[in-house]
Design a protein around this nucleic acid. Structure first.
Lengths: 105, 105
DNA sequence: TCTATCGGTAAGTCGTAGCTTACCGTTCGT
DNA sequence: ACGAACGGTAAGCTACGACTTACCGATAGA
């Protein structure tokens, strides 16, 4: 499936532009130019981000004439989500009781 | 409560060293020097990361002689977690059905 | 009181991520 | 077949974040 590679997921979503793109694509698939119009960065910048997201398996693209429509890859998204959850699980295990104990202190 | 400020949470945990520190402190509270011993970075570097984490409300510190013991702040941790969850909620709302529909295709 | 340990801060270096401009290939419409 | 729209890529710049060394204050032990 190759939904995900090595770049931490944190690194991928660490960039605000990339998060914006992901949120944008979550609403509906869009072409590169459309994305660039809604973001404060240039079209090439969007392209570069899309490349990163695609390498990570987060988005898929499809040619549509001269345009290229990008959309979220559900499998990649949930894989990434799982990976981030793993961090929380590891962090909170053996610590969870304190969280629940003190509550919001 | 001031558990959290503006720096995205993504930015905070985006750094591998910082994640390592958090995971380390999740096991048990530690002094600065102890943390530095377990990480491949210098003690001042650890100090600087701890500063970021403290400003974000993720950790608390307590003087213990010449040493300074840091531990996770449960409220800050869950606040951060909630914030990251918000991203996913926003991203997946109106997209969730596709995820569940296609499953892992 | 003197000294050693511990940790925060300042200053400076370095690498890299993100952005822009410029260019080029491809595809559609006329 | 020609021109225009669309998007990927190369090259280069810039800014910032992470790290190091050096220094200093504070605390505890002898």
């Amino acid at each position: 499936m190759a939904t995900y590679q090595e770049p931490d997921g944190w690194e991928i979503l660490g960039d605000p532009s990339r998060r914006a793109i992901v949120e944008c694509l979550a609403v509906r698939p869009r072409a590169v130019g459309e994305l660039a119009d809604e973001l404060p960065i240039s079209r090439p910048a969007v392209s570069q981000h899309l490349r990163v997201l695609k390498d990570a398996g987060l988005v898929e693209d499809e040619a549509a004439g001269t345009r290229r429509v990008y959309r979220l890859n559900p499998a990649g998204v949930s894989a990434l989500r799982d990976q981030l959850d793993m961090f929380w699980r590891r962090t909170l295990e053996g610590f969870q009781e304190i969280v629940e104990d003190e509550g919001k202190s």
